[in-house]
Simulated scan of single mutants.
Amino acid sequence: MQTGLFHTRIQATTGLLGAPVLTLDLLVNTVQKKVSGVARVFKSTYPSVNFFADVWGDYSKAQLHPSTEGHIILSLTGNPSGPTSQIAATFHLHGILGLDWASGFASYKYCYQGNWQDVQHATVSQASIPHPEPVPHHPVPLYAVAVQQAQSSGDLAQLKAVVRQGEQQLASSDALRSALQQLNAEIARLEAR
């Protein structure tokens, strides 16, 4: 069991084909035994469901059987706007999880398009937390204004300087190489005058 403040992502599903899948992104405060986060219920089969709610609640530790290590008893409530809003609750969950927050069972209900849906005895498992792919850094050319000014003034030296600068920064991209070739063709055309 972790202590302090930590994030966990868990899923709850009955395992039936076409059944809704609940994903909970939770921030757990072990000092105050409070939980907050978001709940998403997704079902792709007809009638499809794409439900979202801010959730909050608390948990306690319990030893349900003397031969077990213990469990987490989790209780959550939610609505679209958070605990301080005056909007009625649209989500409730009661679950029994392992101390690792990665396994267990939960029953929950949610109100979607005015109708309450009830899901009993869904199996809880750890959901993967994708790490964002690093975005490669590509310099972004901001030469359009400089090129237009050089073309309109006929200042060939300025246009050549802009093109050289672009070539130095962006020579690795095929699309940009093509654009630079077009600029070089424009320089040749201006020089021919």
Rank of each mutant, 00 (worst) to 15 (best):
G98T: 15
G166M: 14
Y112F: 15
T3W: 03
A175Q: 08
L16M: 10
P141I: 08
F42T: 14
L99Y: 04
H71Q: 14
Q168S: 08
G95T: 11
S67N: 13
T84F: 03
V21K: 12
V140A: 03
R164N: 09
H65L: 12
Y46G: 04
A39V: 09
A157E: 14
Q182T: 11
L24G: 01
Y112N: 14
A157Q: 15
A102I: 04
A62S: 12
Q32W: 00
L17K: 07
Y59R: 06
Q165L: 12
S107Q: 13
G4T: 06
H71L: 06
A102P: 02
V41Y: 00
D155A: 08
S36T: 08
R193E: 10
H94F: 03
N184P: 02
V163M: 06
L27H: 03
S178A: 15
Y108T: 04
L176K: 05
Q86I: 02
L190E: 04
A161E: 15
A102N: 13
L24D: 01
A106P: 14
I10H: 02
W56K: 03
H94N: 15
R40N: 14
A88R: 09
A53R: 01
A144Q: 13
I72P: 04
T45F: 02
T68M: 12
W56Y: 07
L142I: 13
Q120W: 06
G70W: 10
L190F: 00
S67T: 15
S173M: 10
H65Q: 14
A144Y: 03
H121D: 15
Y143R: 08
A89I: 11
N115S: 08
L17H: 04
E69F: 04
A53F: 01
Y110D: 10
G15K: 06
P139I: 01
K33A: 12
F42N: 13
A62H: 04
V140S: 06
F91Q: 01
T30Y: 00
G15I: 12
W116H: 08
